[in-house]
Design a protein around this nucleic acid. Structure first.
Length: 901
DNA sequence: GACTCCCGCCAAAGC
DNA sequence: GCTTTGGCGGGAGTC
């Protein structure tokens, strides 16, 4: 056809522009100037028409044909021979309409002139898809002739290739012969997605994504050579395979030509792009990250702006097609620097292989072929216990020593008594009454945070280069004495990287500005000061709480997140919701689950506070207690913060141990996924799970949708709304920006259920696993010093003081002028106690067991998010100020807002 | 000015 | 040698 390149020069364009004439004349369909109308009006001539599609009875208009001609012509032609072309064509094509040209001038022509949008690939793809049924009958031959389609759609064939290539990647079409394709529709889509997800996991895309995000934070990733080299090394450490096109049985490419340039083909790129969504949590992938990953797979050293731009272009092409397929939806991640384009997966959730989905890769370099013999059970097991799988990661030499040290520490920790507390999964109806103290607190003590962050950064910088390797390789080093299968060594690496300040930076819970959904963002303190804008590494923690399977599901989800960071396959797609499309997910959310989540999150915070305080009670506790007793005015917050800061310095050497302890606890928690140990596990393992996110991958923070678990209930959100919050992927997301959400008194009070302690890396610790004493959340103090911060609960203060030994049990002291005197129960924690109502908030917080063995605790507690669809539940914080509070601090660094277009 | 992404050049592969 | 495919990047349109 066209020029040697298949494209047409001016002449070709003119020739092509005449092609539609015949078609138009033969099929006097209304060819609206707008593509939208065309979308539903395309009347296939030779290709299988979409069954549902009925020829529109739109009247033939005098200008319709001309509009088509115009749209078919290139801009150059139009600009060069606009008038003459129009008149001539009108005369030639529409002899019966001699006056046509008169109607096409000035504004009218502009109207007929299809805008750029109307010629978009996405719209074109819509047209294309409209021609064929989603689920074509197997009996009928659904052939696609590219030439014909191109003609009918009045586009260059080149554009059709773009569409077909992407469709091919999803096995919606397959090439039969030259210029001929077969339409399969969505029959194979589920299988394809499963296969892609599987391959994506095996290719460790999750790790790559996280690594890139981390890099971005650490270096504000750009294209200078040094950083590229660093990036390249990191990629190399992942041993990612040059995964090529993933094929399904019976759908292999039949023409070698198709594979000739597959390395960079749109097909492969499309598959990889889809993989990123399937393995990501949340299923939001920014173009930037995707491009970097795709580039990285090729040759990162060549990463330059032009290449990056090219990848972005291609990704736009792919994204447009995928959007037309309604598999993804464009969103924007807003950060302080501006908006970043991203896409959210809106397609069906991909379940783990419930059947032996055969897939083949035409990979040339690696991807270990997926075993067809893997049963669904085995696959599930593999997903649940990824640590058993192969570890393809290599350990960075510089980290071997560190790993050994960690191993030793872990052994010590694991040998130590750790008895996770069973938590009743029963619903706490009172959680709905969760107070509104969750409101963000004004920024405070930013300087302290920065100071802490600096120290942390120094340490981190030393290890950042090899953090990934270390993290990925940790499984090897991690001893698995008790629950080898569940060991998630991914957290271990963080031990050595954990700055002392971690303990002072707990997750932040922010209310969703739009939906009222709250999100807990876990920010790695070490990067707090370095992050000023959107941090891709804000891990949207899937905080499953709606799953009827309770802890198991949660665990699975957690495992998924964890394992993805470990570098091996893991899926955690055992959630029932996974089988549903994004649109359907909401229905599975139960309010009780959300309440449970709330409670868990509260418990986490509480225990974390207690644990932390316990570990520091000798120094900081006394000081803090004294401060409380003296009812320091808000102005003293800086003093307290300073004390904490200094104290944390001293506590730095404790961080590693505490993280290990947390890791140990988490391992126990993970055991709950082990069927044979389920009974036992249920007794020892908390129901709530935090999503561990090794700092090595998530240096900055995590965004945890809390949805109905927190504010949602309180805010009076209807059940329906809550359900939606939990399950529906919000169209708008945002991360909190720097800010501190102090743990309010009510938050602590309300929790009488032991929960997990989360390490700075989101490692969970059961309350009892740590000889923690009740502690007053530092945040309370800090928050109390802020005008907008809720005052710490008297009960908490008393509770803390009592456990610290500053006051005898039963004695109540006003911790803060603003605090109310709340009677506290001196009873030990009511482990597994199920929900109580708001009144229970007044009850004494759970008293950690084994207080006689205070252990250094640096964990930040972490609220278990409530939304099952974490991925979709990014929240927003309109506040851009940085905030800090001690103890239960959270330091959001960047504002992240994801919004749909 | 950044973001999108259309457009078509041009080369590899196929026939 | 012509056609088919499709990688690639300039640059126009849009925000």
């Amino acid at each position: 056809m066209q020029q040697a390149g298949g494209e047409m020069g001016t002449g070709d364009k003119e020739n092509r522009s005449s092609e539609p004439h015949r078609n138009v004349l033969e099929t006097p369909l209304k060819q609206a100037a707008t593509s939208q109308s065309v979308l539903t009006e395309i009347q296939p001539l030779t290709t299988p028409p979409k069954p549902k599609e009925t020829p529109p009875a739109d009247p033939w208009t005098p200008t319709s044909n001309l509009k088509i001609l115009i749209s078919a012509a290139s801009p150059e032609i139009r600009s060069r021979e606009q008038r003459r072309e129009l008149s001539n064509n009108a005369r030639d094509v529409l002899p019966a309409k001699p006056c046509l040209q008169e109607h096409l001038s000035g504004d009218e022509y502009e109207k007929s002139h299809p805008s750029r949008k109307e010629k978009s690939l996405g719209l074109l793809c819509h047209k294309f898809l409209a021609r064929y049924p989603d689920y074509p009958s197997t009996t009928e031959n659904n052939y696609i002739c590219l030439d014909e389609v191109a003609e009918e759609l009045n586009v260059e064939r080149r554009r059709i290739y773009d569409i077909v290539n992407v469709l091919e990647s999803l096995h919606m079409v397959s090439r039969l012969a030259k210029n001929r394709y077969a339409w399969h529709g969505r029959h194979n889509l589920s299988k394809t997605l499963q296969a892609l997800k599987k391959v994506g996991e095996e290719n460790k895309y999750t790790q790559q994504i996280q690594m890139i995000k981390k890099r971005e934070y650490e270096h504000e990733f750009d294209f200078d050579g040094e950083r590229n080299e660093d990036m390249a090394r990191s990629f190399g450490s992942i041993e990612h395979s040059e995964m090529s096109f993933v094929e399904l049985p019976g759908m292999e490419f039949r023409a070698a030509s198709v594979n000739s340039r597959k390395d960079k083909s749109l097909r492969v790129m499309s598959q990889k792009f889809v993989m990123l969504f399937l393995v990501s949590t949340p299923q939001i992938v920014s173009l930037e990250v995707a491009a970097k990953i795709l580039i990285g797979e090729d040759q990162l050293e060549d990463l330059d702006k032009s290449k990056f731009k090219t990848k972005i272009r291609r990704l736009y092409d792919i994204a447009n097609v995928l959007s037309s397929l309604e598999l993804i939806k464009k969103v924007h991640v807003t950060e302080e620097r501006g908006r970043k384009p991203a896409f959210k997966w809106t397609g069906p959730m991909v379940l783990p292989n419930t059947q032996d989905t055969k897939l083949e890769t035409t990979s040339t370099t690696c991807p270990p072929p997926i075993s067809d013999s893997i049963t669904s059970k085995e696959q599930c097991s593999k997903n649940l216990f990824p640590s058993r799988g192969k570890q393809n990661f290599t350990r960075h030499p510089s980290l071997i020593k560190l790993v050994k040290s960690i191993e030793n520490d872990r052994r010590k920790i694991q040998s130590a008594p750790t008895s996770p507390v069973k938590i009743s999964a029963s619903t706490d109806p009172n959680l709905s009454a969760f107070p509104s103290q969750m409101a963000p607190v004004p920024a405070i003590a930013k300087q302290q945070l920065e100071g802490q962050s600096k120290r942390a950064k120094e340490l981190k910088m030393k290890l950042s280069g090899s953090a990934l390797e270390f993290n990925l390789s940790s499984p090897e080093a991690a001893p698995k004495p008790e629950a080898p299968r569940n060991v998630t060594p991914c957290q271990q690496p963080t031990l050595g990287l954990c700055p002392p300040s971690h303990s002072a930076i707990p997750p932040l819970i922010l209310p969703h500005p739009h939906s009222g959904v709250s999100y807990a963002i876990y920010l790695h303190p070490s990067q707090a000061h370095t992050v000023t804008t959107y941090n891709p590494s804000f891990m949207l923690q899937p905080l499953p709480c709606a799953n009827v399977t309770g802890a198991k599901s949660v665990n699975s989800k957690v495992l998924n997140t964890i394992t993805t960071e470990e570098g091996d396959s893991q899926i955690a797609t055992d959630e029932p919701t996974k089988s549903l499309t994004a649109k359907e997910r909401p229905t599975v959310i139960s309010e009780t689950s959300s309440q449970r989540c709330l409670k868990r999150s509260q418990a986490l915070q509480e225990n974390n506070s207690i644990k932390r305080f316990r570990s520091d009670e000798e120094k900081f506790g006394a000081s803090l207690g004294e401060s409380i007793k003296n009812e320091r005015p808000p102005s003293s917050s800086s003093q307290v913060n300073h004390e904490v800061d200094n104290f944390q310095k001293e506590r730095q050497n404790k961080t590693e141990t505490s993280d290990q302890n947390a890791a140990s606890c988490y391992e126990q928690c993970k055991r709950e996924d082990i069927p044979e140990e389920e009974d036992k596990a249920k007794q020892d393992i908390p129901v709530a799970f935090a999503i561990p996110a090794p700092e090595t991958f998530f240096p900055s923070g995590y965004l945890i949708p809390l949805t109905q678990c927190t504010h949602g209930n309180k805010a009076g959100i209807s059940n329906k709304e809550k359900a939606g919050i939990c399950s529906v992927q919000h169209t708008t997301y945002s991360s909190p920006i720097a800010g501190v959400i102090p743990v309010t008194a009510s938050e602590l009070k309300a929790v009488n259920i032991p929960a997990f302690h989360i390490t700075p890396f989101n490692i969970m610790l059961s309350p009892t696993s740590l000889a923690a004493a009740p502690v007053l959340s530092n945040s309370c103090l800090s928050s109390s010093n802020t005008s907008s911060a809720p005052n710490p609960s008297p009960s908490v203060l008393n509770f803390t003081l009592q456990h610290v030994g500053l006051i005898p049990a039963g004695v109540q002291v006003p911790a803060n002028p603003a605090l109310q005197h709340v009677p506290l129960s001196s009873q030990p924690e009511s482990v597994g106690r199920s929900s109580e109502n708001a009144n229970l908030q007044e009850e004494k917080p759970p008293v950690p067991k084994e207080p006689q063995e205070p252990q250094p605790v640096t964990e930040h507690f972490f609220r278990t998010p409530g939304g099952p669809n974490t991925g979709s539940s990014l929240s927003a914080n309109s506040d851009g100020t940085e905030r800090i509070s001690l103890g239960t601090l959270y330091i959001p660094q960047r504002k992240l807002e994801v919004s749909e277009d």
